[in-house]
């Protein structure tokens, strides 16, 4: 592709150049991205992803106990029914829900023609749908854990 390079390509001149004082940025952090929805969705995607990964490793091992004996499986799965683990499962489902919805948002940013333009709005849609799903799941799960 022929391209006309405008401006100086090589640093040959040693003349002093007047550089205007940069205007104060209106964007926190001074970048297009830092501190805004894009950054926080990325941070949450990473943290939830790592958490889910380590749970997955444990979950494959605990399920493998069905091959050992019914007693062994029931003892270990019994630990998942305690109140503390019940709250842990709530956190896990919340993490999976966010990772799933934000993952779909990432795919839309990548493949949807106007995805980048709507990435902020889509982040709030992710949070909204996540909230609805959690409102549906939380009471039912807490009743199953704490009895009702």
């Amino acid at each position: 592709m022929p391209a006309k390079a405008s401006g100086a390509g090589a640093m040959s001149s040693s003349a002093t150049i007047e550089v205007p004082v940069p205007r104060r940025s209106v964007i926190p952090g001074g970048t297009l991205y830092r501190g805004n929805e894009g950054m926080w969705s990325w941070v949450l995607h990473r943290i939830t992803g790592v958490a889910i990964y380590f749970f997955l490793l444990v979950h494959i091992l605990d399920t493998a106990l069905v091959r050992v004996s019914p007693e062994a499986y029931n003892i270990v799965i019994g630990a998942y029914k305690t109140p503390i683990m019940g709250l842990g499962e709530l956190a896990l489902v919340g993490a999976i829900g966010f990772h799933a919805l934000n993952g779909l948002r990432i795919i839309l940013v990548d493949f949807w023609g106007v995805g980048t333009r709507h990435q902020k709005a889509m982040f709030y849609v992710v949070l909204g749908v996540w909230l609805v799903l959690m409102i549906g799941f939380t009471p039912r799960h807490l009743i199953n854990v704490f009895g009702g």
Binding site: P70, I77, Y80, E89, V93, F137, H141, V145
Partner: peptide, 23 residues
């Protein structure tokens, strides 16, 4: 995973139904 969570944690008695016989 949505199907997995729905069947194992939402339908029936949720987490308290899971034991060897369920699996």
């Amino acid at each position: 995973i949505f199907g997995h969570l729905f069947v194992n944690l939402f339908l029936g008695d949720g987490v308290s139904q899971i034991d060897f016989a369920f699996v």
